[in-house]
Write a protein that binds this DNA or RNA. Sequence first.
DNA 1: GAACTATTTAGCAAAATAGCTAAGTATATA
DNA 2: TATATACTTAGCTATTTTGCTAAATAGTTC
Lengths: 103, 103
Amino acid sequence: MNSISRVFKALADPTRRQILQELKQSEMAAGEIAARFEISGPSISRHLAILKSADLVSDRRSGNHILYRLEPHNLANAVGDFLSAICPTQVIQQHKIRSRRRT
Amino acid sequence: MNSISRVFKALADPTRRQILQELKQSEMAAGEIAARFEISGPSISRHLAILKSADLVSDRRSGNHILYRLEPHNLANAVGDFLSAICPTQVIQQHKIRSRRRT
DNA sequence: GAACTATTTAGCAAAATAGCTAAGTATATA
DNA sequence: TATATACTTAGCTATTTTGCTAAATAGTTC
């Protein structure tokens, strides 16, 4: 599966999108993430593996914990490239994902 | 299912993403779209229904044909809102989905 | 209205997805 | 080294998704 497919597949699940939201604040241990959801630890672990394989998060071990961190560049690249390929520039400009109007 | 979920589910399939790309040029009849893919007409018809239920395309009848049209605003809104919610402004600005640098 | 064209809907099979529990791996600590 | 903690991997089930063909619907034309 190619990169863009992995990203959009990863984003198709609401739990995974929510995990990304949680990680926006700061990196978190897998267990800490799991504690914020109703579903089981192993299920969250699998969601994290899917997010990681899409390069939307990265992980690192810290002692007994595994810390997950959002990788916003990869998210912005994949999704942004797609948007840019589909939507006329004008539409993107009209939307608030634009950067500041004047620099 | 809510709007954002419908959009991301719709975008999860590569055939559907490609349909959106094809529609970027101009509106097209269902059969004309189907002709560009290997898969059967009924399967394309279902993909179109999914894209429509996510408000990513609209359709209108013209005589014997049903013409599908890209709805880029809905695409930009849903995906853009999500990106804005997850990625720091800085990351979005660095990416080319930003609008022109200076106006 | 009968026949033709364009498209969708129905019904089915195969594959993918997401959930669970149980078992395995890795690190920390007594 | 034994035990505890934190996660992941394996193996299973239920559900959803995607593809197909056949049948139904909508509009056009003779």
